[in-house]
């Protein structure tokens, strides 16, 4: 979360005049599941409310407090011209901006539009397409404004959200390891579903954070937390084929919540090189805006 100031314990977290830091929660194109995670904190929610002033959180309170805010949690992706304006406003009124969930960090499931022609969808889905103002692509917040930290997941993990908020209050960098799901899967004592059952699993190329939830229930990992720090998708694809996955199945497992994350995009294209030929918008994702979070500076990411 940037370089913490060291003059006093709460320096980086306090609002003006030493009041409680003010928290805002914003929504863009999303299902609300990630901001609900904050309400799901239940036991810890009162502690959160004691340490921060929840100033703007429409999911929880219809009384929006005015800005500026010390910490903004931003859910959702940018999909409309209006979003483009609004995210700039959010950035302006936020001292720290943390994006939460796959929509905000990667464009979400709705980034599947990136691989097709959105105008075709409009003509098929809406009676009056001319009423719809939408962008061709669904993009992460960091493609538009500087982001202080990106918290992955679909949805995000409750403990990790509390860690990020606690880290913000203490003025330190959040501990959110970008290694594979396998690390927490083994620590948890799960049987490896891939080795022991032959179940296809994205765990080896997916970032930890969920606590290896699906393998704990004998399911393969779905990749909700997006690519891990140094994903070798080609090697995994070869093994997934050995386990019986077909080309369309391989494409489908990567084309979910984090489809637009570059390593997963490449994984789908590695599985089916013809995707490059028949998709309408295969161009590379826009460069992320400068000033991204320290947690995003991962030397191994391709």
């Amino acid at each position: 979360m940037g370089a913490p100031r060291r003059s006093s314990r709460r320096s980086s977290a306090s609002g003006p005049g030493g009041a409680r830091p003010r928290l805002a929660v914003w929504k863009f194109a999303s299902c609300d599941g990630c901001q609900l995670t904050l309400l799901d904190c239940e036991e810890e929610l009162l502690s959160v409310a004691a340490r921060v002033e929840i100033a703007y959180f429409l999911e929880a309170s219809s009384a929006p407090g005015p800005g500026p805010y010390d910490l903004s949690l931003v859910e959702g992706s940018i999909t409309t011209p209006d979003d483009l304006e609004r995210i700039r406003h959010v950035r302006r009124v936020s001292r720290r901006l943390v994006t939460i969930g796959a929509c905000a960090t990667a464009g979400g499931i709705q980034a599947l539009r990136d691989f097709a022609d959105v105008r075709e969808f409009l003509s098929v889905v809406y009676a009056r397409p001319d009423y719809i103002a939408t962008l061709d692509r669904s993009t992460p917040i960091s493609a538009h404004v500087p982001v202080d930290f990106e918290l992955r997941g679909c949805p995000i993990d409750r403990r990790q959200l509390l860690e990020v908020v606690s880290a913000f209050l203490a003025g330190r960098r959040p501990v959110v390891p970008p290694n594979s799901v396998c690390v927490e899967c083994k620590a948890r004592g799960n049987a490896c579903v891939m080795v022991a059952h032959g179940t296809p699993c994205l765990g080896p190329v997916t970032q930890a954070g969920c606590g290896a939830l699906c393998p704990a229930f004998n399911r393969g990992c779905y990749g909700c937390f997006g690519p891990m720090e140094s994903p070798n998708v080609r090697a995994l694809n070869r093994q997934l084929r050995e386990l019986g996955m077909s080309t369309p199945e391989l494409v489908r497992v990567y084309r979910t919540f984090n489809a637009a994350e570059e390593p997963f995009r490449q994984a789908a294209e590695d599985a089916d090189p013809e995707l490059l030929d028949h998709e309408t918008a295969p161009e590379k994702a826009p460069e992320k805006a400068p000033g991204k979070a320290p947690g995003e500076d991962r030397g191994g990411r391709r």
Partner: peptide, 10 residues
């Protein structure tokens, strides 16, 4: 071939 997943060390 290596996934750098760390399973071997775990």
């Amino acid at each position: 071939r290596c996934l750098t997943c760390a399973n071997c060390t775990m």
